[in-house]
Design a binder for these strands. Structure first.
Length: 492
RNA sequence: GGCGCGGUACCCAAGUGGUAAGGGAGAGGUCUGCAAAACCUUUAUGCGCCGGUUCGAUCCCGGCCCGCGCCUCCA
């Protein structure tokens, strides 16, 4: 099954494939590690994870590279303010980013690439551009890309810069760029700033050059897909194209994917609006990592997602339904055989699910057949019509679903535990939702013991005691479900 | 101003030129020691507004209103 994915470059749905017929080579812009990641960042990384997982599910081999920008103006400024090196400043944020990826079950790419470890490649690329006459150095030692060297500039973002460029061109003095739109390849070191001593001078890379250099390093001059947040389309990706294609005379990425920004409560998320959330913020408020994942991937990547706490609650309930269903399916006993109606339904659900994802990763549409199948299977179980062969067929559908959505297994305790640990160190315990610490402290063993006691009380028809235990547990966020196959409990 | 996206039930959200998926929430019911879960029924003659094309439009075209994004190294 071939994925048809919107391609920013062509403005249409194009089939996504590995040009070399082996591995699909993709580059995704990663974080700049000057702070903790916020949910907007993670919406992008989650949607790229959906892409990645769907490709793997369809048997595509991947070579996926993601950069970590560990040198930039903000990092330099913040590190200086803190009186530490940029390495020391960014290290905890790199660590935090990787932990957050794990919390959200975002798969790691095959290759993580740090900007500071690829300075040589960037310098080489700048030299190549200089040799071609497309880069020039200003008096202060900085290097710029000459936009006029790349007539196709603007082809990704569909911007026509011919009108606005150089309209007010005056005699530039030697400290300035030739043209206002020329962008920095290399920034000369200012006193006290971190610098690399290189063949093109003392300084540090501009932002765009790192992605060009690292993409080419790991993926070659031309590769299959480049992805990132919508804001990167211009100027970042446009600049990458200009530098790369000017240097190699080959097309850079064939396919470009851009994830739309999310809104929070209908407005752009920003610190000044007070609607700015990191992953940690949400975990400390008591939301589960799986619910955050579900909420952020359930709206297709090209649509604006309006993030709300209600949405997280909805997502939590949807996940509950999925998990409860699978538990019911796996814990019951079924007669051998197959029910042809269920077999058909399972087959259709899987086909519809895959087709929805193959259609530009329509995650919202993909969920529907899964929930349809759940209702049908629940009904069949109620009526004793579901057979062992059906259970297996349906479990296989759930496995396909979870290969992309990855919310069925409950991995929620660990991210919350880590967030609480972090809050303690960071002095953020005041932000922890009431009761969360107590709930977290309640061990599975303690719950099991109370559940066992209640089961005994029920057997002795001591319903008063049984209900007392139920209520006691409910107050601690534990929900009990009695069934003929035993008691199941879950954390709210 | 330039480029682009969206306005679908109480909330979130798919979708198609032929009469509105799915999730959440609410109400009623079945089941149950109670509860939970599950299932059934129910909540848009209606898809921002006004025209047009068409046998027929939520879906196509035009206009308008509203919201949002990018154009400032913010994913």
């Amino acid at each position: 099954m071939t994925l048809r994915l919107y391609n920013t470059l062509t403005g249409q749905l194009d089939p996504l494939f590995a040009e070399d017929g082996k591995a699909l080579r993709m580059y995704a812009c990663g974080p700049t590690v000057y702070d903790y990641g916020h949910i907007g960042n993670f919406r992008t990384f989650l949607q790229i994870d959906v892409l990645r997982r769907f490709l793997l599910l369809t048997g595509t081999r991947l070579l996926h590279v993601m950069n970590i920008t560990d040198v930039d103006d903000k990092i330099i400024r913040n590190a200086a303010a803190a009186g530490v090196s940029i390495q020391d400043y960014s290290a905890p944020f790199v660590q935090a980013f990787l932990e957050d990826l794990d919390a959200l079950r975002i798969q790691h790419p095959e290759q993580l690439a740090r900007a500071t470890e690829h300075i040589d490649r960037m310098v080489e690329l700048i030299q190549k551009l200089a040799a071609a006459g497309a880069a020039y150095q200003t008096e202060d030692g900085s290097w710029y890309f000459r936009l006029s060297a790349f007539p196709e500039y603007g082809k990704l973002s569909k911007k026509d810069l011919s009108g606005m460029e150089d309209g007010a061109r005056v005699d530039v003095d030697e400290y300035e760029k030739d043209s206002a739109r020329d962008f920095a390849l290399w920034k000369a070191a200012k006193p006290g700033e971190t610098f690399w001593d290189t063949a093109i001078g003392r300084g540090r890379p501009g932002w765009h050059i790192e992605c060009s250099a690292m993409a080419m390093e790991y993926l070659g001059d031309s590769f299959d897909l480049h992805a990132g947040g919508e804001d990167l389309m211009f100027p970042h990706h446009e600049n990458e194209i200009a530098q790369s294609e000017t240097a190699t005379h080959k097309p850079f990425a064939r396919h470009w994917m851009h994830v739309r920004f999310l809104l929070v409560d209908g407005r752009k998320m920003s610190k000044s609006e007070g609607n700015f959330y990191t992953l940690r913020d949400l975990l400390l408020k008591g939301y589960k990592a799986s619910a955050i994942r579900m909420a952020l991937i359930s709206v297709p990547y090209r649509h604006q997602l309006n993030f709300t706490f209600d949405g997280l609650v909805d997502a939590t309930s949807a996940i509950d339904r999925l998990r409860t269903f699978r538990h019911r399916l796996t814990s019951g006993t079924y007669a051998p055989g197959k029910n042809s109606a269920l077999q058909e339904a399972a087959k259709k659900a899987e086909a519809d699910y895959m087709a929805a994802l193959a259609n530009d990763l329509n995650t919202a549409e993909a969920r529907a057949p899964i929930f349809d199948l759940i209702r049908m299977a629940n009904t069949a179980m109620d009526q004793g019509q579901l057979l062992a062969g059906d259970r297996d067929a349906i479990l296989a559908v759930l496995a396909s679903f979870d290969a992309v959505f990855d919310v069925l297994e409950d991995h929620d305790a660990e991210p919350t535990r880590r967030a609480l640990e972090w809050a303690e160190k960071a002095g953020r315990l005041g932000d922890v939702a009431p009761g969360l610490l107590a709930r977290q402290a309640l061990t599975d063993e303690a719950v099991d013991a109370l559940v066992a006691e209640r089961t005994l009380a029920k057997k002795q028809r001591n319903f008063a005691r049984a209900d007392q235990i139920r209520n006691e547990l409910a107050e601690k966020g534990i929900i009990l479900e009695d069934s003929k196959d035993g008691v199941r409990w879950k954390r709210k």
